[in-house]
Write a protein that binds this DNA or RNA. Sequence first.
DNA 1: ATTTTATATTATTATATAATGATATATTGA
DNA 2: TCAATATATCATTATATAATAATATAAAAT
Lengths: 121, 121
Amino acid sequence: MDTDQPLLDEQAIQIKAKLFRGFADPSRLMLIEVLRNGKKSVGELVEITGLSQPNVSNHLRCLSDCDLVKKDRNGRYIYYSLSDKRITTILRQSEQLLSEVAKGVYDCTRYNSTNGLEKNE
Amino acid sequence: MDTDQPLLDEQAIQIKAKLFRGFADPSRLMLIEVLRNGKKSVGELVEITGLSQPNVSNHLRCLSDCDLVKKDRNGRYIYYSLSDKRITTILRQSEQLLSEVAKGVYDCTRYNSTNGLEKNE
DNA sequence: ATTTTATATTATTATATAATGATATATTGA
DNA sequence: TCAATATATCATTATATAATAATATAAAAT
């Protein structure tokens, strides 16, 4: 057994996991997916996603803190957009991966969140 | 305001978010990172990561259910390895993205898990 | 200045899930 | 068969975090 592997950089792991958590929530991911089509105001995001306004706002703040989206105020509207096109690349590649492993992921019971996709009307 | 966007495919979002949750936990991500260097038995993974054996086993089951890793029994040992090289690609691209947004992610306070990196001795 | 509209914040509650401890199930060899 | 080793399962507990409701702030228009 080879226990003398180069040590794992725990900080690097932590931060990478944290990055993925940005994509790992259905509501946040939905917002990101919508933003792939170009910038949107908070109100538009609320309408399109059906999420509540505070919920959208909270997730946007999270994504913005993580520099995954950037904001751009125009009058009373604040337009959000993806900060980096690598985000799109990662999403595209995940879709390709999913085309292989979708069934397994679908059936996976360890986590099975049903949050985030209820309408608010 | 354009509310007549093509409807979001909620099932697709759910499953994609679920895929990312595979990568979103430090312990699981650590296992995946180790497996980037080639297949390892459960015992080796326990040693290398410092996680407890049941914890490793649980996470491996999760990853295996999701078809992100595959198992290969050899005598009493079960060797795990990454199932698809797209996983490596996604990880590499996330590293690139992180090189841009690392500070934001690091500072992000919305989620701040400190789990998963304690030793078990 | 007040009202209206757009967005953000905050405290609270509920839920998902990670870690642990105890135990069970292989597999091999004596 | 029994002991030893390797891995898996399961119930429990603890924690992280998503959603909500209520409220606050900011900008523009009247």
